[in-house]
Computed example of a mutant assay.
Amino acid sequence: MNLQAVDLNLLLAMEALLEERNVSRAARRLGLSQPAMSNALARLRGLLNDPLFVRAPGGVAPTPRAERMAPGVRAGLEQFRRALDGVREFDPSSSSRTFRIALSDHAEWLLAPHLLRAVEREAPGVRVQCKRLDALFVLPEAELRMGAADIAIGFFPDARTADESTRLETVAEEEHVVVMRRGHPLSRRTLTIEDYAAAPHAAVIYRPEPWGLIDQELAARGLRRNLRLASPHFLTVLHTA
Rank of each mutant, 00 (worst) to 15 (best):
F99L: 09
D91A: 11
L84A: 13
A118F: 08
G72K: 10
A56G: 11
P64T: 00
E108C: 10
T63K: 02
V128K: 01
S33C: 08
G125D: 11
L77H: 09
A142K: 14
I153C: 04
L110F: 08
R81M: 01
R121N: 08
M14A: 10
E89V: 11
H106D: 13
L115V: 15
E20R: 14
T98M: 13
L111I: 14
F80V: 12
V54E: 15
P92H: 02
R43D: 03
S33I: 01
D91E: 15
A75R: 02
A142L: 14
P64I: 01
R81K: 09
R29A: 10
A36M: 08
E120Y: 09
A27S: 07
A42W: 13
A102T: 02
D134M: 10
A66G: 12
P35S: 07
L115H: 10
G154R: 00
E89C: 03
D91N: 11
E122M: 12
P140S: 01
A142P: 04
A159V: 07
R117C: 11
R97G: 02
R74F: 01
D91K: 06
H106F: 15
S38Q: 08
A26W: 04
Q129M: 10
P92W: 05
P62M: 02
E78F: 08
S94N: 10
V128P: 08
A152M: 05
L77E: 11
R121Y: 07
L136P: 08
G31Y: 06
G154A: 02
H114K: 07
G58P: 03
S33Y: 07
E15D: 15
C130K: 05
V73T: 07
M146P: 04
I101M: 09
G46N: 15
L18E: 12
M14N: 00
M69S: 12
D50I: 02
R74P: 03
G154T: 01
V138P: 01
A148K: 09
F53R: 04
P64F: 05
Q79S: 13
L52W: 04
P62W: 03
C130H: 14
V138T: 13
F53A: 03
A66Y: 08
L111F: 12
M146G: 13
L48H: 11
R121V: 04
N39S: 12
V138Q: 13
R132M: 14
A118V: 07
G31M: 05
